[in-house]
Design a protein around this nucleic acid. Structure first.
Length: 193
DNA sequence: TCATTGATTTCA
DNA sequence: GAAATCAATGAT
C-alpha cells in the first residue's frame, strides 16, 4: 500500500504520518443507534481515495441523524426501494443519493440490519455544506453501497481530538411533521482541543 | 428570494 | 407514462 498522505490547511493533521490499520473504525462503531453514532462521528477523520490515488483526509464537523420508519424525513420511512435498500443493511455501508438535480449527499448507515438508519455527513473541515463536501472529495453515485469497514475508496479513521458540540433542529424537513422538526438531530462541532 | 437541475417516487 | 418531490447552493 503506497498511500500518499495529504494534509489540508487547518486540519491539524501532519503530512507523512502513516495511519495505522487499526485506526479505521470497524463494524462495532457503526452498528450502534444512529443517535449515538452521529455525535460520535464528530472529530473523526473521513478518508476518501481520489481518482489520482491520493487519499484526502478531513475531520468531520457536522452530522445529522435520520432514524428509521418513525422518522418521516428518512428516505426509508416508506419502505424499501432500490434507492433506500442499503439503509436496511447493517451499519458501516455508504448511502449516497442525488438531490436538487445537482448535489450528492453522503450518508453512513448505522444500526443493525433491517433497522433503516443513517447519518448524513453535513460538514467537514475545509468546506461547509453537504453538497460542497461531496464535490470537493469527488464523491458520487459510484460510492453507493461501499462498506466503510473494508472499502479501499472510503473509510473513517479514529481520532484523539477532543471536541465540544451543540445540537440543533434539522432543517428543510417541515413535511415530516412538527414533532420531528423539534428533535435536535443535527450535531455541530463548537470547539476542538 | 429564487432559479437551477435531474433522479426517484407516486399517481394514473 | 406523467407529474410532483427534493436532506442545497449560488447568484441577485
Amino acid at each position: 500500500m503506497t498511500d500518499q498522505l495529504f494534509s489540508m490547511k487547518g486540519t491539524g493533521l501532519k503530512t507523512g504520518v502513516h495511519i495505522e490499520p487499526g485506526k479505521r473504525l470497524g463494524v462495532d462503531f457503526f452498528t450502534k443507534d444512529v443517535l449515538e453514532v452521529a455525535p460520535a462521528l464528530l472529530g473523526k477523520i473521513l478518508a476518501v481515495r481520489q481518482p489520482d490515488k491520493i487519499v484526502l483526509r478531513q475531520m468531520i464537523t457536522e452530522t445529522e441523524a435520520y432514524r428509521g420508519t418513525e422518522d418521516k424525513a428518512c428516505h426509508a420511512s416508506r419502505g424499501k426501494t432500490p434507492r433506500t435498500e442499503v439503509m436496511f443493511r447493517r451499519g458501516g455501508f455508504v448511502y449516497v443519493y442525488f438531490v436538487y438535480g445537482m448535489y450528492w449527499m453522503l450518508n453512513v448507515v448505522t444500526g443493525c440490519a433491517n433497522e433503516p438508519q443513517a447519518v448524513l455527513i453535513r460538514g467537514i473541515d475545509g468546506s461547509n455544506g453537504p453538497g460542497r463536501l461531496t464535490r470537493s472529495l469527488n464523491i458520487n453515485g459510484t460510492f453507493y453501497g461501499e462498506d466503510m469497514t473494508v472499502s479501499e475508496r472510503i473509510w473513517i479513521e479514529d481520532s484523539d481530538i477532543e471536541i465540544s458540540f451543540e445540537k440543533t433542529p434539522r432543517i428543510g424537513i417541515g413535511y415530516a411533521g412538527r414533532r420531528l422538526v423539534n428533535m435536535l438531530w443535527i450535531f455541530i462541532i463548537t470547539s476542538r482541543a
